[in-house]
Amino acid sequence: MPGPARQAQILDVCRRLAVTEGYEDVTLERVARECNITRTVIYQQFGGREGMLTALIDREIANTAAGFAEATSGVRDGDVATAVRRVLEAVDADADTWRLFMLPAIGAPPELYDRLERGRSLVRRYLAESARRLAVGDAVDTEIFARLVHAAADEAVRLRLTHPEVYSIDRLVKQIVRLTE
């Protein structure tokens, strides 16, 4: 199997194990066994467990960032309903990736939290810039607005991931829109 395809296979197994069983169960032995390879192949591709998990996190952060960018692209300022709906649809389309970050399992590597905070900072900046473009005078404290909307959106994503049968996209969108009116 070519290097990139092998890396993808290894990272796919890592993601599944991290989501279903937790990072502690993502061992070189387990991943090698499930990929039908030797641990040496993992060392060649990633340098070891830490490198493998860092590569997983980097790949999945890139996927969530791309999903967020695609979901919010072309949404006009102030159209909260469309932006939230599209983000929640992106969550549904790649729930395991979003679970890694929104519901991190015990034993997650420190790199996860570092990259997660960087991603959250970018989302808050996006929200603050949107609020700034819409604000009239001093009517909105854009920093606080961005933090509060971000917290509500984070919780909406968590609710959608944990209980999609209870928290429909329509129900979540309706409430976030009410919060931002």
Rank of each mutant, 00 (worst) to 15 (best):
M1I: 10
Q7W: 02
A8I: 08
D12H: 02
R16S: 15
V19G: 03
T20M: 05
T20L: 12
E21L: 06
E21T: 07
G22V: 03
D25E: 12
D25N: 15
D25Q: 12
R30Y: 05
V31T: 04
A32Q: 03
N36Q: 14
I37N: 11
I37L: 15
T40P: 05
V41N: 04
V41H: 05
V41I: 13
Q45K: 07
G48D: 03
R49E: 01
R49H: 01
E50N: 11
G51I: 01
G51W: 01
T54K: 14
L56T: 00
L56F: 00
I61A: 11
A66E: 10
A66L: 08
G67W: 00
F68Q: 05
A69L: 10
E70K: 15
E70R: 15
E70I: 08
S73P: 04
V75P: 04
D79A: 10
V80W: 01
A83T: 06
R86H: 14
R86E: 04
R86C: 04
L88W: 02
L88F: 02
E89F: 05
A90M: 01
V91I: 06
D92E: 15
A93S: 12
D96S: 08
T97N: 06
T97R: 01
T97P: 02
W98V: 02
R99E: 07
L100N: 05
L103E: 10
A105K: 11
A105M: 12
A108S: 12
A108C: 07
A108H: 09
P110C: 07
P110A: 12
E111V: 13
L112N: 07
L112Q: 01
Y113L: 09
Y113N: 10
R115F: 00
L116Y: 04
G119Q: 09
R120Y: 08
L122D: 13
R124L: 09
R125Y: 10
L127A: 06
A135T: 14
A135R: 15
V136M: 08
D141A: 09
I144V: 15
I144R: 15
A146K: 03
R147E: 15
L148G: 12
A151R: 11
A151Q: 12
A151E: 12
E155G: 13
L159C: 12
R160D: 02
L161A: 08
L161E: 08
H163F: 09
P164D: 06
E165Y: 04
S168V: 05
V173S: 06
Q175E: 13
Q175R: 13
Q175T: 14
V177E: 08
